[in-house]
Amino acid sequence: MTSNVSKARKILSVLLKIIAALAILVLLFVATVFAVDRISSASEQKKLQPYGQQVTVDGKQMNVLVQGDGEETIVLLPGYGNAAPGLDFQPLIDTLTPDYRVVVVEPFGYGLSDPTDVERTTENIVNEIHAAVQSLGLDRYILMAHSISGLYSLDYVNRYPREVTAFVGLDSSVPSLSEQKIEASDVAPIRWFRDLGFDRVQLKLSADPYEGLAYDEQTVEQLHRLMRRNMYNDTQLNEVVSMFGNFQAGQQQSFPADLPVLFFLQAHHPAVAEWIPEHEKQIANSEQAEVMLLDANHYLYRSHPQEIAEGVRAFMQELK
């Protein structure tokens, strides 16, 4: 009996030592990830190169990039989580600027713009973007939007119909195809994940979205730095929490019938069979509207900038 008890104690002791060793290894791993992230983030912050210009909105700085000298202006808005819109849109900007002046607005929490604690409702986001546009003295322009900014743009064009001459959607979101509801408590683990530096590990293990595309090496390095800086920041996490309500509000809106609308859509959505039909419903009552399908993924402006630029020119020419 004594021998069995002694063996059990030895086994328990070994197990406890193994568990303690594993716990120490985990803590060392977490501490290493945290330290590497903090050191790397400080180093990368010093290497960031400014681009665009800063405008003041609600007492904070919003970054905007203005390129080109065309008579007509395109205001370009990013999709959710875009690390650096002014750089990410560069291939498309370069193909548009021979004919247009392009203004890329980086909303708060994006690119080089400041973060904000203001709730990310559609109303607040649209107010901030419009304030940035006004600060540049723009009063007539084409509004072009990728992904979730298509939802915000639906509110925008209804509020400022005298300013927006046409809307161009780049695989833009549709209110009827709502995102799932996410509570504030759901993003708390993401903050821990980010604060410990594991977002850097995630990016390191992920495929490079710019590999093989028309971006120069310096731009890609800048994009990577800003991806690591802006990923899961509090402003963007607040936007995620607000997203479901924004989609619900958007279902009460439609494009003005007299607003020309052009959609560029991926021809084969990998998950949503209703992607094209729901966009077609959006423009059912539009007097001038067109849908162009591209053999591309959601980020079609990265891979097909030339087709988009040519499509915009042709569409706008038909309106004259």
Rank of each mutant, 00 (worst) to 15 (best):
D258H: 11
S147H: 08
T122Y: 00
P161H: 09
E123I: 09
A131Y: 04
V26K: 08
V75E: 02
K10A: 15
K17Y: 14
E71R: 13
A42C: 06
R120W: 00
D234Y: 02
Q218W: 08
L28I: 13
G52R: 00
V75M: 08
N233A: 05
D58M: 08
V66Y: 03
D37C: 09
K46W: 07
S113P: 01
V75S: 03
V272F: 13
L203K: 11
N285W: 06
P78R: 01
D114A: 11
H269Y: 04
Y152H: 13
Q252D: 15
T2R: 15
V164T: 07
V133K: 02
S6E: 15
I142Q: 02
Q251N: 11
S43R: 15
A8C: 12
A188S: 15
T116P: 00
I93E: 01
T121A: 01
F244Q: 06
E307W: 05
Y210R: 05
R101T: 15
Q251G: 09
A184V: 10
D195W: 12
P209L: 06
L196S: 07
K281S: 10
G212Y: 07
L226C: 01
H224I: 12
F29A: 15
P107G: 05
H304K: 13
E221R: 10
V261M: 06
R225G: 00
V312G: 00
P256A: 02
